[in-house]
Amino acid sequence: MSPTAMTTSVMPSEGTERRQVAAVERFLRRHPVEAPTAGARLVSPNGEEVELPAQLLDVLRHASALLARGDGVAVSAVARELSTTEAAKLLGMSRPTLVRLLDTAAIPSHRVGSHRRLLLSDVLAFRQRQMQERRKSYEALMLESDARI
């Protein structure tokens, strides 16, 4: 099985466990993740400790927020190098749309034989740029709308 095919799903439970997840979510919200680490530690029942990296705390924060509100969570492994189909799915677009972006070099890619491959970091950077551009456009639209009132 390829690394991209591995997925773990967790559905929210009711009662005590859901209240515990909500308490974790509130705690993590009050104590935001700082890079490289916030000095957070995971402690086992026998007292063994390990320091948690900031990126793992960030995953825990997002997962606990979703579970606390009653949504399920799926965690999937994503390879460092993606096919065009995998990258398109991650970006929420069709493969032909992604290929057009690759043709204009909006996202870097390389070839492995006759197939294109993209680095996960490049795909995530593109997605971040898209989100920032959308946010700026939305804010500009709201300012224009407020100016008309």
Rank of each mutant, 00 (worst) to 15 (best):
S2L: 13
P3Y: 10
P3V: 13
T4A: 14
T4D: 13
A5N: 13
M6C: 14
M6E: 13
T7H: 09
T8D: 13
V10K: 06
V10F: 10
S13A: 14
S13K: 15
G15D: 00
E17W: 13
R18S: 02
R18W: 03
R19Y: 13
Q20T: 12
Q20D: 10
A23L: 02
A23W: 03
E25D: 10
F27A: 13
F27Y: 12
R29Y: 04
R30N: 11
P32L: 00
P32Y: 00
V33F: 05
P36F: 01
P36I: 03
T37L: 09
T37K: 11
G39C: 05
A40F: 06
V43T: 09
V43N: 05
S44H: 06
N46E: 12
E48H: 15
E49T: 13
E49S: 12
V50P: 07
L52V: 10
L52A: 04
A54F: 06
Q55V: 14
L56F: 08
L56Y: 10
L57V: 02
V59P: 05
V59K: 07
L60P: 09
L60V: 05
R61Y: 04
R61N: 12
H62V: 13
S64P: 00
S64G: 00
A65H: 10
A65E: 05
A65C: 05
L66G: 13
L67G: 01
L67S: 02
A68E: 04
A68M: 01
G70D: 01
G72N: 02
V73F: 02
V73T: 00
A74N: 10
A77C: 15
A77P: 10
R80K: 14
E81Y: 07
E81A: 11
L82S: 02
T84S: 05
E86A: 08
E86D: 02
E86V: 03
A87N: 04
K89V: 11
K89Y: 08
K89L: 08
L91N: 00
L91R: 09
M93E: 04
M93F: 01
M93A: 06
R95K: 08
P96H: 06
T97M: 12
V99D: 04
L101K: 09
L102E: 03
D103Y: 00
T104R: 14
A105Y: 08
A105N: 12
A105M: 08
A105W: 06
P108F: 00
P108Q: 05
S109C: 03
H110G: 02
R111F: 08
G113Q: 09
H115G: 04
R116G: 02
R116K: 05
R117C: 02
R117T: 01
L118K: 08
L119P: 05
L120S: 03
L120G: 06
S121T: 14
S121K: 15
S121D: 15
D122V: 08
L124E: 09
A125E: 07
F126L: 04
R127E: 03
Q130K: 10
M131D: 12
M131E: 14
Q132M: 11
Q132L: 11
R134F: 08
R135D: 11
R135V: 11
K136P: 03
K136H: 11
S137Y: 08
Y138G: 12
Y138M: 15
A140C: 11
M142T: 09
M142H: 14
S145R: 15
D146T: 14
D146S: 15
A147H: 07
A147E: 04
R148N: 10
R148Y: 07
I149D: 14
